[in-house]
Nucleic acid binder design. Structure first.
Lengths: 189, 189, 189, 189
DNA sequence: GATGAATGAGCTTTCATTCAT
DNA sequence: AATGAATGAAAGCTCATTCAT
C-alpha cells in the first residue's frame, strides 16, 4: 500500500488519543493501520519510537508558529504575546497533537524510558528562561523566578487547551488574543 | 504489624509518584509495603481501589482548606483569592498528594475504568461554574465562558505546582498570595 | 499439586534433552510439567534460570562422586584414576544430566547470557591445573601443558559418554576402569 | 560486488562462531555481509542451507588431509596415527571451521532439521568401524567396541581442539604428533 | 542479481487476580 | 488477617521467509 509509515503514525496518534499512550497496544495500532506487526517493527523499534516520531512532528509544527517570538528586535510585549498566541493557535488547530504532546510530557516526568522525549520537550525551556532574564534586566517585566513567570504566562493557556472544544478559525484567533493579553498583564512590570 | 492498610496506601502513593500509576504493579506495592499479595487484596479490591482511596484522602484534605471560598457572605474578591490560595497552600504542603491527583485527573479523561475518579474530581466544577455565573451577574468579574475564566484563575497555579520545588511554610504563603492576586487581576471586571 | 518446582525441573530437563536447550520453549515446559506459564515464572526468572538450577543439581551430584580425587594423601595414580572413574560412573548413572551439562558447556562458550553457567563449570578447572602442576613437580606425570594433559586424561571419557548407550551397573564399572587405566597410561611419566 | 556468495558464507561463519548457530539471525548475516535479505535468499534457501554449505566446505578440506589413512597398504600404526594427525593439523589450521563443525555435530543429534548434516558427518564413521574391525582381526589393536576405541583414539584430540589457542605451523605439527602417538598407545594390542 | 518492505506465527515475559491454607 | 502458590490472558517483540519491483 501507499506510505505504510504514515498510516502507522496516523493510526497510532488516533489510538493514543482515544485510549491513552499506555493503554494503547501494538495490536491496536496494527488493526487501525492495517499494517502487520512485522511491518510496524520494520519502521519503528517499538511503541516508544512511534511516540517519539509523532512528537517530533508536533514539535516542529509548533515551533514554526512561535518563530516570531525568537526575534531579538521584537518589543518585549509582542514577544510574550506572540509566544502565547503561537501556542494557542497551534493547539486549537491541531488539538490531537497538542493533547498527545501534553500526555507525553506528563509521562516523561515519571517514566525513565522517555529520556529522549524529555530532552525534546525541555529544549526551548532554557531559551525561555534566558529571554525572560533579559526582559527583567530591561525592566519591562516583573522580577520573578522563571518557574513562576512561566506559569503566569502559559498556565492559563495550557489549562484551557487541555479541555478545549473545537473552535472556528475566528474563535481561535479571539481566544488566542485573550490569553496573550492576559499573559502580558500578568507579568508586565 | 501496625495498620497494614496504612502501609499499603503509603507504599502505593510512593510507587505511583515514582513510576506512574500504570507502570506501578501490585508486586511493587507488595515489596514496598511489606504486605503480602493476599493482604493487599484483603483490604482493597484491586489497584484501582487503592488509587481511589488515596484520591479520597487527597480530596478531603484539600476541601478543608478551601472551605472559606464556599461561604456566600464572603466578598467576591476574597472568594476567588481564597480558592486559589487554598489550592496552592494545600498542594505545597502535600506535594505527593497533589501530583498524584493530577496524574489521576489525566488518566480519568482517557481511561474508561476511572469513571468513579472522574466523578469525584468533577464534583465542585459545577459549583464553581454556578458561583462564577453569580459573580458575573453582580458585575464583579469579567463575563467569560467558565472554561476560560477557570483557566485564567487556576491555570497558573496548576502549571507552577506541577513542577514546584519544596518550599518553607513562609514561602508557600507568599507564593499562594502571588497566584491569588494574579488570579483576581485576571478576572476582575 | 505436589512440588511444582520439581515437576518443572524434570519437565525442563526432559525437553532440553529431546529438543536441545535453544529449541525448547517455555510452552514445551508448560505442557510437559502441567504447570501454568505464571507458575513457571513464579519459581524461575526464565529459561536460563531453570537451566542453571538443573546444572547446579548436576554439578553437586557429580562432585560427590569425585571427592576422593581431592584428598592430598591419595597416591597420584589413584587421584587421576579416581577423577576419571568418578566422571564416567556419574555420567553413566545419570546420562540425562551429563548430556545436559555437556550442552550447556557448549552454549556457555558462545552465548554471553551464560556467564553464571560458565563460572560454575570452570570452577574446578583451576584446581585441576594446580594439582597437575604438583604431580609434575613430583615427577609422577609427564610435563605437559595442562590443556593437553587434561585432554589426554578426560577426552576419551567425554567422547564416549556423549554417545554412550545405557549400561548396567556392572558394565559401567568396567567401562569406568577402562577409561581410568587409559588416562593414567596416557599421562604417567 | 565481488562474489556475494562468498561474503555471505564468511559473514555467516563468523556470526555462527561468535553467537552460536541458533542465536544467529539472518539479520546478523545481512549486516555483517553487506548483502540484502533478498540477496541471501537468492543464493541460499535459508539459514540451514548456509550452514550446510559451510559444513560441506569444512568436510572437504578435512578429508583431503586424512586421505592417507584410507590407503589399505599403510601399516596399521600409521593408519591410526595419520587419521589423528590429519584431524589435529586440519583443525589447528582451520580453527573456525573445526569449531563450527563441532557445533553442528552437536545440534544434529538433537534437532530433526539437521538430518542432512547428520548424514554428512556420519559418513566415514562406518568406514572407521569396518577398518578397526579388520585391524582387530589382524591382532594389531585391542579388541574393543568401536565406540570405545574411537573415544580412546580421537577423544583427546577433540577435547583439546575445542579450546585450543592459535598455534604456529611448527607447534601444530608437534601437537599433532603428540596426540597421534598417544592414540596409538591407547589402542595398540 | 539485487533490494527491502511486508508478513504473521510464535516466542518470552508480565501482571492483576484468585484461592486453598 | 495473612500468606504466597497458581492462574492464564495479553502484552511487546523477533525472525525466517516471501515477493513485488
Amino acid at each position: 500500500m501507499m506510505d505504510r509509515r504514515r498510516q502507522i503514525l496516523d493510526a497510532a496518534l488516533a489510538a493514543f488519543l482515544e485510549k491513552g499512550y499506555s493503554a494503547t497496544t501494538i495490536a491496536d495500532i496494527r488493526q487501525r493501520s492495517g499494517a502487520s506487526t512485522g511491518s510496524i517493527y520494520h519502521f519503528f523499534s517499538g511503541k516508544g519510537a512511534i511516540a517519539e516520531a509523532l512528537l517530533r512532528e508536533a514539535v516542529s509544527g509548533w515551533s514554526l508558529l512561535s518563530a516570531a517570538a525568537l526575534d531579538p528586535d521584537t518589543p518585549d510585549e509582542e514577544t510574550v504575546k506572540a509566544s502565547v498566541r503561537g501556542l494557542v493557535l497551534w493547539a486549537l488547530t491541531n488539538p490531537s497533537q497538542f493533547r498527545f504532546m501534553d500526555e507525553l510530557r506528563r509521562l516523561s516526568t515519571a517514566d525513565a524510558d522517555f529520556a529522549a522525549v524529555r530532552t525534546l520537550l525541555d529544549r526551548g525551556q532554557e531559551d525561555g528562561a534566558a529571554h525572560y532574564a533579559r526582559m527583567t534586566a530591561r525592566g519591562s517585566v516583573r522580577n520573578l523566578p522563571f518557574a513562576i513567570a512561566h506559569a503566569l504566562m502559559l498556565g492559563p493557556a495550557y489549562a484551557y487547551l487541555r479541555t478545549a472544544p473545537n473552535s472556528s478559525a475566528d474563535e481561535a484567533r479571539r481566544i488566542a488574543d485573550l490569553f496573550a493579553d492576559s499573559a502580558w498583564q500578568s507579568v508586565k512590570a
